[in-house]
Simulated scan of single mutants.
Amino acid sequence: MPKIQPVTPVILSGGSGTRLWPVSRTAQPKQFIGLTAPQTMFELTLARVAGLADAQTPLVVANAAHADIIRAQGGPDITVILEPCARNTAPAIALAAMALEEQDSAMLVMPSDHVITDVAAFHAAIERARPLVAEGWLVTFGIEPDAPETGFGYIALGEELAEGVRKVSRFIEKPPLDRAKTMLAQGGHVWNAGIFLFSARAFLDALAIYQPNMLAAARQSMAEAERDGKVIRPSEAAFALCASDSIDYAVMERGEKVACVPVAMGWSDVGSWDALYDLADRDADGNAVQGAAQAIEANGCLIRSDGPHVTVVGGQNLIVIATGDEILILPRGRSQEVRKAVAAMKQRKGET
Rank of each mutant, 00 (worst) to 15 (best):
Q5S: 07
Q5G: 05
T8S: 06
R25C: 07
Q28W: 05
Q31K: 02
F32K: 06
T40Q: 06
T40I: 02
F42G: 03
T45L: 05
T45P: 15
D54W: 00
Q56P: 00
Q56H: 03
V60A: 02
V60P: 02
A62P: 01
N63D: 10
A64F: 02
I69V: 07
A72E: 14
A72F: 11
P76K: 04
L82S: 07
L82N: 10
P84E: 05
N88Q: 12
A90P: 08
A92Q: 11
A97C: 13
L100H: 14
E102P: 00
D104H: 11
S105I: 00
S105R: 04
S105A: 14
M107R: 10
L108R: 10
H114F: 09
V115K: 15
I116S: 08
A121C: 11
A124S: 15
A134H: 07
E135C: 08
P148M: 09
E149A: 12
T150R: 09
F152Q: 13
A156R: 09
L161S: 03
A162G: 13
V165Y: 09
V165I: 06
S169Q: 11
E173W: 02
P175N: 07
P176F: 11
D178A: 13
D178W: 04
K181Y: 01
A185C: 03
G188P: 08
W191N: 15
A193M: 15
R201E: 06
F203V: 03
A206C: 05
L207H: 11
R219P: 00
Q220T: 09
Q220L: 14
S221W: 03
A240V: 09
A240H: 05
A243T: 15
S246A: 14
D248S: 07
V258K: 06
W267G: 01
W267V: 14
V270K: 03
D278C: 11
L279I: 10
Q294F: 04
I296D: 11
E297V: 10
I303R: 03
D306C: 01
G307M: 04
V313P: 03
G324C: 01
L328E: 03
L330F: 01
P331M: 13
V338Q: 06
V342F: 01
A344E: 11
K349W: 13
E351I: 08
